[in-house]
Write a protein that binds this DNA or RNA. Structure first.
Length: 387
DNA sequence: AACCCGTGGTT
DNA sequence: TAACCAAGGGT
């Protein structure tokens, strides 16, 4: 029995060597003329390439640029990253999201100091051992910084290739990436692998986009089977996401006599792990615990009395809440939607002394790292007069 | 394999 | 507006 390779299994016919050569030339010529000027394209320093690739995970180029510039300016060497306190790193990352990315980078920087004598590893397998670096990022860094012929298959590349070859595999599945990597191993330019990978991504980001895709404007349209067959609207195939769940929180901005506000550090796992928010009480959990004498509608009086009692019992803190919410804020995550019913409150005695609680004065807000939902609450409260 | 993890921009 | 999307990785 003859063993079928990955491409044969998926009914993908690879181009001839001659066609592959023409494709490389066409794509790289287009890239040389049309590539975007990006700060991380001014260097081959693997550390800087690494930083950019981590920031670019699930994040748009325009968002990343200022973060990237500030990050490498503040921490110009891997050793700086390895030695930086977590608060410094989180402040540099504030607003970018997916905060485990920067925590993992610190872990990886320490790995590099320990296992690779402080020098970013060149071996692809070594790179993959670094925390937070997966198949895409390993391929990106080794191809761009070290000119290795490694595939770097991201969402752009899968979209471009699925249209070029009319591939109907579901690109939301992790296993699909391997098929596209095999295609890239055939196509990648051995002289300029990093540029080749980046060219495909630029093409996906600027021309071969998800929407507003006009294939006749593509520099490689003659290679595009879905264009020639007028089937491009079918690609890429992507399973729809499940709906986001909604959660409602009574959110308490508690102020003491020193005009400081009370924040609570979230658990080390889960959403916004280890970050500060005001005290947030999940409405559902609250009800389940038997605090249910209130009815909703526009009368918050009974809710407020219960919340005051709850804070006294759970946090050992006497507070006086305003009887009406200051506002209702919404924040959408990738998979959750928060509704925050924000109340202002005064601490009648400053005896909240739990480890996870922290009083912070408004004048220190810009020095603290706050996730965006907390920033929204802060902004709301900054506009109000308490009592 | 399926789900978790932020945020901002578009349609 | 709800849904979708963006240079993914960890568990």
């Amino acid at each position: 029995m003859k063993q079928k390779n990955v491409l044969q299994k998926n009914n993908i016919t690879m181009w001839s060597e001659e066609k592959i050569d023409r494709f490389r030339q066409t794509l790289l010529n287009w890239y040389d003329e049309s590539k975007r000027d990006l700060p991380w394209r001014e260097t081959t320093n693997p550390y800087y390439i690494w930083v950019s690739e981590i920031m670019l995970q699930q994040t748009q180029v325009d968002t990343v640029i200022p973060y990237y510039n500030r990050f490498i300016k503040t921490l110009p060497k891997i050793s700086d990253l390895a030695e930086a306190p977590e608060e410094t790193l989180l402040k540099l990352w504030e607003g970018l999201g997916y905060y485990s990315r920067v925590r993992n980078m610190k872990v990886a920087a320490i790995q590099i100091q320990k296992d690779f004598e402080g020098k970013f590893p060149e071996n692809h397998k070594d790179v993959l051992t670094l925390k937070g670096i997966g198949p895409y990022t390993a391929g990106a860094v080794t191809s761009i910084a070290f000119n290795q012929t490694q595939p770097a298959v991201d969402g752009n590349v899968m979209r471009v290739l699925s249209r070029l070859f009319e591939i109907d595999l579901d690109i939301s599945k992790v296993s699909t990436r391997k098929v596209f990597e095999e295609i890239i191993r055939h196509l990648i330019d051995p002289e300029r692998p990093g540029d080749f990978n980046q060219a495909l991504m630029d093409l996906g980001a600027t021309i071969c986009t998800p929407k507003n895709y006009f294939p006749e404007t593509s520099p490689v349209k003659e290679f595009n089977a879905s264009y020639l067959n007028e089937t491009w609207e079918k690609y890429p195939v992507k399973k729809k996401k499940t709906k986001v769940t909604e959660k409602t929180f009574y959110t308490l901005m508690i102020k003491n006599e020193k005009d400081e506000y009370l924040y609570e550090k979230r658990p080390s796992k889960g959403v916004l792990a280890g970050m500060f928010t005001p005290i947030m009480i999940n409405q559902e959990t609250f009800k389940e615990q038997g605090w249910k004498l209130f009815n909703e509608e526009d009368d918050y009086n009974s809710i407020v009395r219960e919340l005051e009692q709850y804070i006294a019992e759970v946090y050992k803190l006497k507070i006086k809440m305003n009887s009406q919410p200051k506002g209702i804020l919404k924040h959408v995550f990738s998979h959750i939607k928060w509704e925050m019913i924000v109340f202002e409150a005064l601490a009648l005695e400053d005896n909240a002394r739990f480890e996870n609680l922290k009083w912070i004065h408004m004048s220190q807000f810009d020095k603290e790292m706050f996730p965006v939902p907390t920033q929204k609450v802060n902004n709301l409260v900054e506009t109000l007069t308490l009592f």
